[in-house]
Computed example of a mutant assay.
Amino acid sequence: MSDTAYSNDRPDVLRQGGEGSASDFFELLKPRVMSLVIFTALVGIALAPGGIHPVIGFTALLCIAVGAGASGALNMWYDADIDAKMARTAKRPIPSGRVAPQEAAVFGSVLSVFSVMTMGVLVNWVAAALLAFTIFFYVAIYTMWLKRRTPQNIVIGGAAGAFPPMIGWAAVTGTVSLESIVLFAIIFMWTPPHFWALALFRSGDYEKVGVPMMPVVAGERETRRQIMIYSALLVPVTLLPGLMGFAGTLYTVATAVLGLGFLAFAFRVWRTAPGAAQDKAAKGLFAYSILYLFLIFSLLLAERLLGM
C-alpha cells in the first residue's frame, strides 16, 4: 500500500502523522493480543522438558512479545486503509492520524529484525527461525494475501497465533516435538470459532471494506454451521495433553467441563436466527472463548507448577 494511494482516501492522516506519543506506538503493538501470546509462550516454556535459565527464559519471552508486537504494527500499517473505515478500528493510531504509515512500517520492521536476531544469539536459532516464520506468516501470508482474498483467511491465518507455545518449547529444547504441536493445534482449532463469532456481529464492518469474512461471503447460516463444526473438533483436541501424558487428571476433567460449556455456547449460536438474538449469542461465545483458552493454558501451567 503506497503512501500516495492512502493519502487519496485519507489525506489528513499523512499530514497529521509524525507526532505520535509513546502510548500510540505501544498501541501499534496490539498489547491485548500480545498478552495472550506471552502467556501461551510461557506455558510452552514451562511444559518443555529440561530446564532453562530464568534470564534466558525471560529473554525468550521478551523476543516473542516484541516479535508479536512487530507483527501487529506491520498489520496496522498494511491495513490502515480499511481500518479507517471500520468502527472497531477507526481510532487506531494510523487512521486517527497520530502515527504516519511509514513510521509504523519502519517501527514494525526494526522490531521484527531485533526480536529474531536477539532470540537467535541469546537463546537458540531454532526458536529464532520459528519466530521469524511466525512474523512472516502473519504479515505476508495472512495480512497481505489471505485476509482480503478468501473466507478461509482466519482458518489458515490462525496458524500465526498458534506458534507462540511452540516457540517457547523450542526456546528450551531447541526442537519441535509432538507435544508442542498439540499446543499449536489447540490454538489453531480455537481460532475459527473465536473470530467467526466476532465476524457475525461485526459483519457490516467487514462487508463495508470488502474483507471476505465468512458471514459476508457464505452467509450467516453457513458461518453458524462452521462455528459448530470447528467447536466440535476443538474439544477433543484440547483433551490430547491428558491422553498423551503431559497433562494430568485436573487438566483433563476441567478441560472436558470447559469444553461442554464451549459447545453449549456454539450450539446456541448455531440454533439462533439472524438478528439481535444472534448477535447476543455470538458475543457470548466470543467472550467465553477468550476465557476458555486462558483457563486451558492456565490449567497446564498450574499442574506443572504444582508438580501434578
Rank of each mutant, 00 (worst) to 15 (best):
P241D: 01
R202L: 15
V237F: 03
S177P: 13
V176G: 03
M119H: 02
L178K: 11
A282L: 09
V106R: 12
G67W: 09
E222T: 13
A46H: 00
S180G: 05
N75Y: 12
A127H: 09
T143Q: 06
K85L: 15
G57I: 02
G50P: 13
W196D: 01
I94W: 08
L260T: 12
F184S: 00
T191F: 05
D12M: 07
I64W: 01
A84V: 05
G97H: 02
L111M: 14
E303G: 04
Y142Q: 02
D83K: 00
T173H: 01
I56R: 13
A287P: 13
A65K: 01
M308S: 12
T134Q: 05
Y138N: 05
P54H: 00
K85E: 14
L263I: 15
L233I: 15
G120I: 10
F163M: 14
A60L: 07
I141H: 05
A277L: 13
V155W: 03
G51M: 10
F133M: 11
G157S: 07
I45Y: 00
T191M: 09
N124R: 09
A70Y: 08
V172S: 01
F294V: 14
L29H: 01
F286S: 04
M244E: 07
G245M: 07
P93N: 03
E27P: 02
I38S: 07
E303A: 06
S203D: 10
N75K: 05
R92H: 06
G17C: 06
A127E: 08
V37L: 14
F163K: 00
A41Q: 08
L14C: 11
V139W: 10
F286D: 02
A87G: 10
A185L: 15
S21C: 10
V155G: 01
L61K: 00
A80K: 12
S96L: 06
A65Q: 05
W190F: 07
S109V: 10
G44M: 11
S109N: 05
G204P: 14
Y206H: 06
K280F: 12
A282P: 14
L234A: 11
P192Q: 02
R202E: 10
L291E: 12
W125T: 14
K147T: 09
Y142G: 00
R92N: 02
I187R: 00
F58V: 14
I290C: 11
M34K: 02
A104F: 13
L234D: 04
R149P: 09
M214D: 02
V269P: 13
L200V: 13
T150Y: 04
L250H: 08
F136N: 02
L178F: 12
T249C: 08
V211L: 15
T89V: 11
L285A: 07
Y138I: 07
S112T: 15
A22I: 15
M213L: 13
V99C: 02
M34I: 08
K85V: 07
K147I: 12
L306T: 02
C63E: 04
